[in-house]
Design a protein around this nucleic acid. Structure first.
Lengths: 182, 182
DNA sequence: GAATATAGTTTAGAGTCTAAACTATATTTA
DNA sequence: TAAATATAGTTTAGACTCTAAACTATATTC
């Protein structure tokens, strides 16, 4: 009845959440603020909005809106209206917040090894889960079906047509879609 | 700089939290209440206390205490003082709560496959992480250094001396310790 | 140009969270 | 064995979070 793999996942998650709480405490901020800073430090330039945060964290946009206001008041986030779509406000970490995010990252992203099998296992777990739940989005461009490697060594996003550096394709994108499996 | 495996873990976790929130919403309860019911449905008989919940979820015992009170008021949890140690109150799910936990489990514990590699990958990830953070506890007895298989096919816990069924060794224990690697 | 969709804000009210002080029981130490 | 300390849990006050729903503003579709 109880599937071992799900128990590992359950525990891994509760441990992760525990660490977020602890790291936030150390920095003197709320856990949800730590999550927001963490997300903004690993998302790409298409994905740094309140709407994306709401989708990523699974909270209502009202809640995100309030948290972002507090973070702005504390000098951790800077908001800039998007010139192409004036409904959109893009969020940026201030240097102070970047330093915090980096310290939090050290706690949340310890060197867990580069093991190929673990990497593949987590990836296929995530694919399965996102597919069965019709959850779309949020993955690194380098694993996205719309990403292609150009002959000059740079990458290109098939959705926006823009070119991406090798650093950029490691960031999280809200438009991300896995390759459909045959 | 950004390690791929950590990004998968990060996303897996946010997705899991998202699902908890969603499942809780569907059941008309708070996310943290869902987590408490979920934990109590997979922990063993040594681990169903407020203290264990506090350690597992990484929250203060004051916070857990309040949540447990609300759950009791809603008829989802029953509290019984432990006769061996009267400081301890053991927590039990009511039938109503068991039904909820089962439905939540279906969402949080989809059939993610039994793949041996994924299983091993998650396990070693968790071991590494718990070790580097000096986090002890919370794992299935079947992977615990104190657990041994008796000749009659049952199991025995080396800490309590009690014997455990093959169902029981699949539950989470707060005293869990991995085998120390040589 | 009107209808609809999308991004984000605001509000009220219920609830969560923490630290710290507290009660009660158990264990250790002198 | 009595005193000191440790452990399990409760209570309190106050700051903060969360959601739903109504709202503004801009963009897209028909």
């Amino acid at each position: 009845m109880i599937n071992d793999i799900n128990i590992w996942l359950e525990r891994l998650t509760s441990l992760y959440n525990s660490q977020v709480r602890h790291a936030a405490n150390t920095e003197g901020i709320r856990p949800v603020h730590a999550e927001i800073l963490q997300y903004l430090s690993i998302c790409n330039r298409y994905s740094n909005t309140a709407q994306a945060l709401s989708e990523y964290l699974g909270q209502t946009k009202g809640s995100i809106s309030q948290s972002v206001q507090l973070l702005e008041k504390d000098g951790l986030i800077e908001r800039r209206q998007c010139s192409e779509d004036k409904r959109v406000t893009r969020l940026f970490l201030t240097p102070k917040a970047q330093a915090i995010a980096e310290r939090i990252g050290k706690v949340l992203m310890p060197n867990l090894g580069e093991a190929k099998e673990a990497n593949n296992a987590l990836k296929s777990l995530l694919m399965d889960w996102q597919l069965t739940n019709q959850h779309k989005g949020f993955g690194q461009c380098q694993t996205c079906r719309y990403n292609s490697l150009l002959s000059d060594g740079t990458f290109q996003c098939g959705l926006t047509g823009e070119s991406l550096s090798s650093d950029e394709v490691k960031l999280l994108c809200r438009e991300h879609e896995f390759q459909v499996r045959s």
